[in-house]
Amino acid sequence: MVKPNLIIGKLTRSQFIRLLMLASGSAVVLAACGSNSSDTSSDSPTASTGQPLTVGTEGTYPPFSFRDLQSNELTGYDIDIATEVAKRLGRPIELVPTQWKSMLASLDARRFDFVANQVSVTPEREQQYAFSQPYTVSGAVILVSQDNPKNIQSANDLKGKVVGTTQGSNFAEAAQEAGAEVKYYQGIAQVLTDLQQNRVDAALNDRLYVLSELKEANYRVKSVGEPFTRETTAFAFRKDNTELRDQVNQALDEIKQDGTLANISNKWFGEDVSR
């Protein structure tokens, strides 16, 4: 009498080997498939001239980093600056669209050379990462829905309120310090959608984003009060990659002095937000 579940023992050796070969063949196909993917971050911290400068950016954060729907290209304030920096370094640029949630982990894992995505310089982050000189000065502002049912007028009013923000953003910390309960979203668009339906009481976001985007979009939300933090944003590098950081700083010096940076800023914000 034969047991139905005695199978492997009864597969002939050659059949078993064929199965194994099928499996390992699959793995080879998989390896071949991936070889043309966007995994080009240089392993050596001192990549030579001519190699692409790989830059992590969200691509979902207008006007800093977003996909232009006419040209289908990634563009924005941060991307313009990074592109200009790459040009000064004589290297092509390669953008790696990455969700903010996995941005810093990707930087750690050498998936790209640096982050150009309005990364705020904070003491905590400075312990983990090397920052370029700042290229934006801004601050967080409070957003409420048009009807503002909780009557929030300033940071003091945030205590005990529900504040929406994006995952891993430094606005979450600002909200917690103000005593608010923080609710996390994937992107600013989802935050504002929920805000206009009063599912959250307020949202925190960058003054520059509010300046440039909010009036174009048709969310029924408004900003209240004064910016309550002063923030600078810069490119973030791995700590072991200060050589590239220094090169980028030099390029930033150049484009500050010859007015290129101010031009880029004017193009996006109508004023110089880089100082």
Partner: peptide, 24 residues
């Protein structure tokens, strides 16, 4: 795949909806 930086349907939809502010 969008969380590991692959640009597929969902991440493209994210990009379009945040660029246009038209989400749903």
């Amino acid at each position: 795949a969008s969380v590991v930086t692959v640009e597929e349907l969902t991440s493209i939809a994210d990009q379009i909806s945040s660029a246009s502010a038209v989400v749903l």
